[in-house]
């Protein structure tokens, strides 16, 4: 990604968070972020994908004020996160990756604490609705230690939403949760977006990004490798493969097919042709004709498309 580029910025789209040339080097010397720039759009769900240690948590920690950037600037709704930290932090809610909750505290009290900490007057009507939305209302007077892991994660979301933020950061929201709860969490995230909240989530589950995000950013080694709408990524970087099953296995490719870049399976029974589906001249018809001319008899033909996971793995591999 070009260093002076403004990824994510396009005409007619309102930017809510603007990250400009942010770098972070920790005291240990580890450089977690390298001159990263990114614009986050109002009302979107943005998934930041990356392997462990890619710099995702550092990035959101900087935006939320937990970590200081070494260089660069970040604005939230036009306000600088350092000079105007009260305004920017009031707009942001953060759900951390770890279950960082007091053991003996009651659910309702921990939400009241969060709301007050962010400078909001107590509003038990709002908190009641919030707890109901999170299916925690009947647990409001329970000590946190009596809740299950999934409930604790929802309490953390409740705490992050207690002050009615317009931007919500979810750091690995479904790490270590079961499939059913993960689906519930996704539904909750979609509902929040519908209510006007901009959502940025970090994840290393491709399925999660694929399932709920509008746009996907891929971070590795502190750099933003890619940022685009999920479907555009699939469109631009996705490849299709045509698998040709042969009636009879062959020992080697006929010389007439050598120019097609075909792969022959180890048992000699299948040919694989990789092509760009958006390229009009992919040549499938010509290939099938050439296969027939080579005297090979087709048993079956099928196609497959690369997943976001394959795209992600290839991107990360390229930077290693």
């Amino acid at each position: 990604m070009g260093k002076s580029a403004r990824p994510g910025n396009s005409l007619g789209v309102q930017t809510i968070i603007s990250i400009s040339n942010v770098s972070k080097t920790y005291a240990s010397g580890h450089q977690a972020l390298k001159d990263l720039s990114l614009d986050i759009r109002r009302g979107e769900i943005l998934a930041l994908l990356g392997p462990n240690g890619a710099g995702k948590t550092t990035l959101i920690s900087i935006i939320c004020g937990i970590v200081n950037a070494t260089t660069g600037t970040v604005t939230v709704d036009g306000h600088d996160i350092v000079a105007d930290f009260r305004t920017t932090r009031s707009m942001i809610g953060l759900v951390p990756q770890e279950l960082t909750l007091g053991a003996f505290e009651k659910v309702i009290n921990t939400l009241r604490f969060s709301r007050g900490l962010f400078g909001k007057k107590q509003d038990d009507v709002y908190l009641e609705q919030l707890l109901k939305n999170l299916s925690l209302w009947d647990k409001r007077n329970n000590p946190i230690m009596s809740l299950s892991g999934g409930m604790k994660r929802r309490v953390l979301i409740g705490k992050a939403l207690a002050h009615e933020p317009t931007v919500l950061f979810l750091d690995e929201p479904t790490a270590g949760v079961d499939v059913e709860l993960r689906k519930d969490m996704w539904a909750l995230i979609r509902r929040l977006r519908e209510s006007g909240v901009t959502i940025i989530l970090t994840t290393h589950y491709i399925e999660e990004a694929e399932g709920i995000a509008d746009r996907v950013g891929v971070i590795n080694r502190g750099e933003l490798l890619l940022l685009d709408a999920k479907h555009s990524i699939m469109h631009t970087l996705g490849k299709k493969q045509l698998h040709i099953e042969l009636e009879q296995a062959i020992a080697s490719l006929p010389s007439t097919l050598s120019d097609w870049g075909l792969e022959l399976s180890s048992d000699g029974s299948q040919l694989t042709f990789t092509y760009d589906p958006h390229n009009a001249g992919s040549g499938i018809a010509g290939l099938l004709e050439a296969v027939s001319d080579a005297g090979l008899v087709l048993k079956d033909v099928n196609t497959s498309q690369s997943t976001l996971e394959e795209i992600f793995v290839n991107l990360v591999k390229e930077t290693l």
Binding site: C64, G65, I66, T88, R89, L94, L101, G102
Partner: peptide
């Protein structure tokens, strides 16, 4: 020390305070 130990300090550090 307690919020530092449990990790709950993140909330104080990210609050407009």
């Amino acid at each position: 020390f307690l919020p530092k130990f449990t990790g709950a300090i993140y909330e104080i550090m990210s609050a407009p305070i």
